[in-house]
Simulated scan of single mutants.
Amino acid sequence: MYSAAFIFEPGTYDQRFHALDALIEEAALATPGYLGAETWRSADGARVNATYFWESEESLRAFSAHPRHLEAKSQYTRWYKGFHIVISQVLRSYGDGTIAHITPNQRKRA
Results as ranks from 00 to 15, higher is better:
H18L: 15
I102D: 04
N49E: 10
Q106D: 15
S74L: 07
R47F: 05
A28C: 08
T12G: 05
I7Y: 00
T51K: 01
G36K: 06
K108G: 15
T51I: 14
L23K: 08
T39L: 11
Y52T: 07
L35F: 10
T98P: 06
V90M: 07
D21H: 11
S59F: 05
S88L: 06
A72Y: 00
W54I: 04
L29D: 05
D44W: 15
L29H: 15
E26N: 14
R47P: 01
N49L: 08
L60R: 00
S42W: 03
I85V: 13
E26D: 15
A22L: 09
E71C: 06
S3G: 11
T103L: 07
H66A: 03
W79R: 04
K73E: 08
I7P: 00
Y52S: 09
L70S: 09
Y13L: 15
F53G: 04
E38T: 10
A4D: 04
F8W: 12
L20P: 00
R68L: 10
G36Y: 10
T98F: 03
P104I: 10
E38H: 06
A30K: 14
P104Q: 04
V86K: 07
F6S: 02
S88W: 00
S59M: 08
Q106N: 15
S64A: 15
N105W: 12
K73R: 14
Q15N: 14
H18D: 08
F53I: 09
A27G: 13
L91Q: 12
A27N: 09
Y13K: 06
A22H: 14
G11H: 07
A72N: 01
G36H: 06
S56Y: 14
E58N: 05
N105M: 12
T51Y: 02
K73L: 11
K73T: 10
A72W: 00
T51E: 01
G95Y: 13
R78H: 12
M1L: 12
Y34R: 05
I24F: 09
L23F: 11
I87K: 15
R41Y: 13
S64D: 13
I7K: 01
A65V: 11
F63N: 00
H18Q: 14
A37S: 11
A28S: 08
L29Q: 11
Y52P: 01
A27S: 08
S56H: 06
F53Y: 13
A4P: 06
G82L: 04
A4C: 15
F83A: 08
Q89T: 13
A19C: 14
P32E: 12
